[in-house]
Amino acid sequence: MIRSLGYVAGLCFCATGAAAQTPVLTIYTYDSFAAEWGPGPAVEKAFEAVCGCDLQFVSTGDGAALLARVQLEGARTDADVVLGLDTNLVARARATGLFAPHGVTTTLNLPVAWDDPVFLPFDWGYFAFVGNADAPQVHSFKELAASDIKVVIEDPRSSTPGLGLLLWVKEVYGDQAAQIWADLADNIVTVTPGWDEAYGLFLNGEADAVLSYTTSPAYHLIAENDASKVAWSFDEGHYMQVEVAAKVAGTDQPALADQFMAFLVSDGVQSVIPETNWMYPAVTPVAGLPDGFSGLVQPEQSLILSPDDAAAMAPAAIEEWRAALSR
């Protein structure tokens, strides 16, 4: 018994390591990108068809965990490309000095200007509260605070959507943000560590709405044929999340990494993003967006802070949020 267990263990522990001849391009990303239902498998297949290489994903938790892992490894990292940091992590990522310019000149279709030489967007989305279509909706934070609608949000100290919401309120209300949070306190059922828990609580009926993305209803519409979820359109505008990739400066496969960065914004990748990552592609696919995306909320105003402003503002905004909601 013990012997056969050890045999199985040996098999499973050491199964990686074959195929030493073909060059390996190692890409660090977050879990849901590399998942079999995410964009990962399609991206891997398409790139391997043109690169003559073996593309390997290494996935760790969410974007914040991804950056923490790269920071832990420092210059010794095996990663050639890091894919899936969001705008609010870019300043921290830049400060590590681990990343190199991408050199890609493809024109992007973002609602805001983006000309970062190092961090290349591959998809983006708007944060929004998502609720049920047959329930009351509100169209601003003030209206939400005045209502008795209950929402669940993510913690800005442990989740990127949570931090996005915080900066959204700060960008719209500035010095009044603390007051808005105090007014919102009785509307917030609870604060969860991450998006997964928050969305699960909403689906289980614990709240009327959840902080998610304007594209969330498209998932239910396309994958589940369920039109019962809607995103609330806020008159004040919607804060954006831009997801970026970057080439690791110390990569041992610079040519492959460059090739991959250009490939990332090509139609082969961009056309699979909407229905696998449920975000807007950074470059609109030749065939256009899927049907389910056409009816989504289109914010009149796109809000976003520059990575440096976001990094500078976050600590004080988190403390303001904590103080206002802890009362």
Binding site: L67, A68, R92, S158, A185, V189, T192, R322, L325
Partner: peptide
């Protein structure tokens, strides 16, 4: 404990030391 405390605690008043560790590790490095 961290996820139970935060999720059922209803807000940042229910912050535990473990959450602060998580924040220091993941968000502030």
């Amino acid at each position: 404990s961290f996820a139970v405390a935060l999720t059922l605690g209803g807000g940042p008043g229910a912050t535990t030391v473990e959450l602060a560790i998580y924040q220091a590790m993941r968000f502030d490095f």
